[in-house]
Design a protein around this nucleic acid. Sequence first.
DNA 1: TAGATTGTTAATCGATTAACAATC
DNA 2: TAGATTGTTAATCGATTAACAATC
Lengths: 235, 235
Amino acid sequence: MAPPYNELPRGIPLAAIKRLPVYHACLMNLSRRGVDRVSSSVLAEMAGVTASQLRQDLNYFGSFGQQGYGYKVPLLLKEIEKILGIDNEFHVVVVGVGNLGRAILEYQNFRRKGFIFDGAFDVDERLVGTEVGGVLVRHVCELAPFLSVHPADIGVIATPEEVAQDIADIMVDAGVKGILNFASMRLLVPENVVLEDINLSTALMSLACRACRGPSRGRVVTLHEGEPEQREKDR
Amino acid sequence: MAPPYNELPRGIPLAAIKRLPVYHACLMNLSRRGVDRVSSSVLAEMAGVTASQLRQDLNYFGSFGQQGYGYKVPLLLKEIEKILGIDNEFHVVVVGVGNLGRAILEYQNFRRKGFIFDGAFDVDERLVGTEVGGVLVRHVCELAPFLSVHPADIGVIATPEEVAQDIADIMVDAGVKGILNFASMRLLVPENVVLEDINLSTALMSLACRACRGPSRGRVVTLHEGEPEQREKDR
DNA sequence: TAGATTGTTAATCGATTAACAATC
DNA sequence: TAGATTGTTAATCGATTAACAATC
């Protein structure tokens, strides 16, 4: 039996999914500039990947271009938005209203991409009752009751590491499907919950390690830098 | 001719380098708890990797354990600190004193790891002259002159994306060796400058995409989650 | 010594790149 | 049609895992 039409694709590399928002940003840029058509090589150049990789990434999800022509910008934009779920609404709660929590709450672009911030939580009584990015800050002890009334898709953890696991447990129990974790601590979550870590501390340390190992040697210092040469012959 | 004793290793996977700070944090934890000795399997379990990977990662840099015994916590800690350069001083400037810039400047742990914040820069006249995290905020137009007097190793870019490339150019011209970029924009830097991007926007978007694709399917939603099973036989 | 655990090589796995047939 | 560029397969490359000999 053929798989149902709307079956979601399997076995897509995480790295490919992470590149989709980059392609999306490039296409938004083209769209704003009134560009209607783009080839894989031009779009790849903008995104900092090879044309081959761009086509491969897109092909995990479908065929959105036309041979001999390229991609229609508005059409490809719409398809990527469909994949990323930008037409959906994602309900988000943010726990920890320090600098990082604020950065998320006040970044207005998220709202345009379908993210709805339903609540923010902190232990600091001076913050409770205030608004950050237009969201009311509640006390953390209200997190579980709040989630039972306002289920969230995504939880952002921007707390000290000592409490991060407890917060994650509350979120998981409340049915959160994804957690963005800024605490520099390994969180244990069930495998049906997606976890994304952003760790400023390890990022800065590994950057310093790479940067200060003296002049360019081998693979270590040549990633992510400058424009990828057009290595593909592609004829 | 044998390579000189202090030759730095080549061809080390970036992913391995990024795991070093994680191992470091685990070892700090053990050290605080007075643990003197650890096996690769226990440490790997703490770090959320396989024992095999841990040993492989360490072996890119040397042999720090003893067969049949494991690793001396203080010794391995010291070795990793040597690799990460935690005994060095890294001079850092932060450009953009919004929420993300503040998060970096106010995170006191960095100071303990050898990071010295020499200057912070912003265009907002209300911020110029104030102190954030104990660092004086200067106007961005002073960035280039400041760097010529106080050379920095690392530059942090936490500005709006419109100006990120200009700031990066100034940093590169001033001899900065690594850039931590929070702006959601692809920066072009020469290949001898190491670039690390942290993009909250693409991180949240790809998280939402993965989290809301329905229940666990294939590789996509099973990475980074929970504890890795002990797959290694290792006898 | 016997048991344990590393260091290190080889096998596997996965992701990227190259190539080219399909086709617009 | 001829030229261009995608879609897609195959080849390459790199990173992870397994295995086990070395050895403490």
